[in-house]
Nucleic acid binder design. Structure first.
Length: 259
DNA sequence: ATGGTAGATACTCTA
């Protein structure tokens, strides 16, 4: 079972990229972020033609998340329960017995800003919700654009991306460690100790050509799934295509599950 | 070097 995450930065623009990548990578489940589409405009018919069901929670201009799957998608949850938020950043559902939690984590703008405070509040709410959710769904994958680089290996220039910068600040990394403490494991790191492999490159300053990236798109597997996680990776290729998203797809492969 | 580019919307915000 191959499960992937991709921040497409406008599904309206990136539908051809998504279609091409689905055909070549053949994932079973895909979590999308930054679809930037109202639900009435979601291309569910085009995706169904490729064999994918879809559930989605979008809005105009900003945010927007979706889960695509070849198998039936059950028990869909939109947003964090008991956390008021107009921004469409969370969708969860069960596919083939695995709870999929798709997150588009708040960017945070700059350390100390109102948006940064919102990011930390939001991460706290996610933590408390996931803690509860794990009790009923021990087989869980939490994935998406985390907008946090876990450690120095995930940053092209740790001197520039330090503890006072968004995406690498101490408070953000502490929030990520609190998710790990629930029994969630960075699947990419389980299989790759070395750093220098990234999932996001700024459009500016020829970031991709110079490989000035960060690894901020993560797939976390629960304790129960960890022994079944047989591979993980980041597919850089779509970032090199014409008019790309600024993010590349990240994926994990799970061995077949017992019933 | 406080810029740069991209997307959506409406002449600016977010990332």
């Amino acid at each position: 079972m191959k499960i992937a995450s991709w921040n497409v930065n406008s599904l309206n623009v990136r539908l051809p990229h998504l279609e091409a990548w689905l055909a070549q990578a053949s994932p079973d489940v895909v979590a999308l972020q930054e679809t930037k589409l109202e639900d009435s405009r979601f291309p569910d018919t085009a995706l169904a033609a490729l064999g994918y069901r879809s559930v989605f929670a979008g809005q105009k201009t900003y945010n927007g998340v979706a889960i695509l799957a070849r198998s039936p998608i059950e028990d869909v949850q939109i947003g964090i329960p008991d956390f008021e938020d107009e921004q469409r950043r969370v969708i969860a559902a069960t596919v083939d017995g695995v709870r999929i939690v798709d997150l588009y984590v708040v960017n945070g703008q700059s350390v100390g800003s109102d948006k940064y405070a919102y990011k930390l509040r939001w991460l706290e709410a996610v933590h408390d919700w996931i803690a509860t959710e794990l009790r009923t769904h021990p087989r869980m994958v939490v994935l998406g654009d985390f907008n946090i680089a876990p450690d120095e290996r995930d940053v092209h220039d740790p001197a520039a991306w330090h503890e006072g910068h968004i995406l690498t600040s101490s408070a953000e990394r502490d929030a990520l460690r609190r998710l790990y403490a629930l029994g969630l494991h960075d699947a990419y790191r389980l299989h790759h100790e070395a750093g220098g492999v990234f999932s996001w490159w700024d459009y500016r300053q020829a970031g991709f050509r110079r490989d000035l990236g960060l690894r901020i798109d993560l797939t976390l597997v629960s304790d129960a799934l960890r022994p079944l996680c047989i591979a993980a990776g980041i597919d850089r290729e779509p970032r090199s295509w014409e008019r790309p998203s600024d993010h590349a797809p990240a994926w994990v492969e799970l061995a077949p599950l017992e019933a």
